[in-house]
């Protein structure tokens, strides 16, 4: 696993300072969405090989949620963004 994460607020930090909070790809459906949609959002996860996006919580640093894009084959970290910034960017693109 990637051992160094470059936090946008704190700089280069070891992975021990973080807690992985799960897949950042699923988008929360509307409250009145069908049970099937909610079931997919809550329970069904892909297990892709290659580039993945995850939420990482910088527990013992700045305590911010980050979106880490990394490759689970080569262990390369491609990008690290604050989850707020990533969320806003997603809204602009109309993803969220």
């Amino acid at each position: 696993m990637a051992s160094l994460i470059t936090c946008p607020h704190c700089g280069v930090r070891p992975k021990e300072e973080f807690s992985i909070r799960g897949d950042a790809v699923p988008v929360r459906p509307a409250p009145n969405a069908s049970d099937e949609t909610w079931n997919r959002y809550v329970f069904v996860r892909d297990n892709p090989k290659g580039v993945i996006r995850e939420y990482w919580h910088h527990v013992s640093g700045c305590r911010r949620y980050l979106v880490v894009e990394r490759d689970n084959v080569s262990h390369a970290v491609l990008s690290v963004t604050d989850a707020t910034v990533a969320g806003r960017a997603g809204q602009k693109e109309g993803v969220r």
């Binding site: 704190c10 280069v12 930090r13 070891p14 021990e16 300072e17 013992s60 640093g61 305590r63």
Partner: peptide
């Protein structure tokens, strides 16, 4: 767990981090 060289962590720099496994 961080680089404490003066070029990276200069005088006056500060931050939250794990110190002996304590935040």
């Amino acid at each position: 767990g961080i680089d404490l060289h003066a070029d990276v962590f200069a005088v006056g720099a500060s931050g939250n981090m794990l110190i002996a496994h304590v935040a």
